[in-house]
Design a protein around this nucleic acid. Structure first.
Lengths: 193, 193, 193, 193
DNA sequence: CATGAATGAGTATTCATTCAT
DNA sequence: GATGAATGAATACTCATTCAT
């Protein structure tokens, strides 16, 4: 098994277990077992549990970044991109419900030492950049793109949560209305486009 | 010390510690120390750590419920209530940043066995009820009040997070615009009121 | 069982095991078992293995100090005290051969962080003080009492080692000659006493 | 790299690491790294860590033996040889303070299974032989050469320790007096030479 | 009611050793 | 011979919980 695959196996096992049982309920021994390696082997790839979690965080974020990069296209009108991005992320999170549980656990855990995660990581940088464009082009209200980006992202996450944690099935058309609510709210009322 | 006070002391200590160190970094021994009681004493009031956490969750939620009850007044126009509620919860969460950290940790933790917390607890019941009123009175889009309520709440929490976790200082007027964004989005476009 | 007794039981078990197997071969679990307590219990009395070893070091040293205090008497001529002390320590070490093995392991181990142990601890302070007296009274060569004390102590330890580690039985009179060798060497040749 | 050189590299690395961190703080992986070989390679040259330590012990002792052989010369008067030997070993140990730390750790470790090391190894055989000569020639007290040899050696080691572990700088003339103390003590008082 | 010493199962991590390449 | 990834037993330490006082 190539190295990359073994790291990936460890990542996937960890994610799965954290999703089910939380950080605390995810001993390294279980990760090892699920990944099909010996406990000690994990330590060839990751210095410690903390490092494993940290790297997993970035590994996962990479996938959200892919969506961002795919949907933020300069050759497509902003509003179209906006809805594409919303649905893109929504779909991704819906199909990988472990992801945001992991994220929220991570953000509120002792593992997350970086205080201002909003600014530093690539995902947020790209996210904010996208909203910056919307502001520049006059489509969105002229507030900090960081605010708009954060609100939009939490809107998406909430939509997933409503179903996953709230046990609510969205009715006909409801799913389409949610990004509309968001757009209508953030839209620049003077936008003539 | 009356029983109620001792339980309260244990609650406050736990909250404080969870806020600082997370669930995992909050051993019962520390809670006991901080609350000024013996470790064994906690077990007179709470069957187990899990029960303590669970009761704390409800204890804390009570305070959010107060805000809800205070601001949801039938004698005041809905839109006014809406903004009052937004600012009421925002202020409460801002002053008690431990609260939402505790909440998110709790929701994504093994302690939270109740899967569909959206329906069962009083806070969400009242919250959804408030938005139901908005829909009935024709101010809000006719979607599930659960959706609107959840989106609104996450909007508030995000606003706090932007500052607490994102390290962003909101500029002049930005704080006022955020509930506006929310209102504009959720508003029924045919509302003649 | 009173607290003091429990600490003592842990001390004795540790000493016994370190004597047999060295620091590395003395897991806390074994110490616990031998002392008749649970593994976790040790940590009520000692913060860590390091602290246990450190406290044991001082606990043991106390017994050497007793000998020193017993034999260093101002009302008895120095030379007499000298031989009494020599035999006192010799007897003590002979009867407790674990002691000096523990000492030498300790001194050369990572547990011994105090670099200049010769000066700081009570045993050496009293030991050097005794030799200081010998110098002041003109019986011993006028060199640093620290040198004389150290040489004397190592002479005693070596005598024990010859038998314990060297497997040599001392013949008739040999044991008495050894402190004589030491005395003759350290004696001030101009001592008229 | 010739085999001999690779073994030597492993020896030196081990010694260095044991000197700094003790046996316990010297994993094979570190030895390998420092020696510039792969972990597995060590096992081509040494059956186990124990064997490595054992062979290192003998490797190092060889250097003490060199000093002994150099200074024990039949064509030079015994007393002269005695002081030469004292200073020779003293100098050697002073310049290689790792050596005696290694020795004492080794002697008091589980690696040292041989109980009576005093008799078997070459260093002690030669050392005792030297003192035998002193006794035969009538210079030294007629006690077991093993006793005299052991006392003399521990005297030298102590002198080094006073400085290395005790943090004491020897004053003018003190270093010269120490072997004198030893000689005066061990000398045969009827020696007419 | 309150205490806090005692328990012991559970966890992260280390490290000597092996073996497929 | 040489490599270094993989192993897994061993170890220090934590912590929820119990119970004799």
């Amino acid at each position: 098994m190539p190295i990359a695959d073994k790291k990936k196996a460890i990542f996937e096992s960890t994610l799965e277990l954290v999703k089910e049982n939380g950080f605390h309920g995810t001993p390294m021994s279980l990760v090892a077992k699920k990944a099909g390696v010996a406990a000690g082997t994990i330590y060839h790839y990751f210095e410690s549990k903390e490092v494993l979690i940290l790297e997993l965080y970035h590994y996962i974020q990479q996938q959200s970044i892919e969506v961002l990069k795919r949907e933020d296209r300069a050759d497509i009108p902003f509003q179209k991109c906006f809805f594409n991005l919303w649905h893109g992320l929504y779909t991704y999170y819906s199909k990988n419900t472990g992801i945001f549980r992991f994220f929220e656990q991570f953000v509120n855990s002792p593992y997350n030492t970086g205080q201002s995660e909003f600014v530093k990581d690539d995902f947020h940088r790209l996210l904010f950049q996208f909203f910056e464009r919307g502001i520049q082009e006059g489509h969105l209200r002229p507030i900090s793109s960081k605010i708009l980006g954060t609100l939009a992202h939490s809107n998406i996450i909430s939509t997933v949560k409503i179903q996953v944690l709230g046990g609510l099935k969205l009715q006909n058309g409801e799913l389409e209305q949610i990004p509309l609510i968001l757009w209508d709210g953030m839209q620049n009322r003077n936008d003539k486009s």
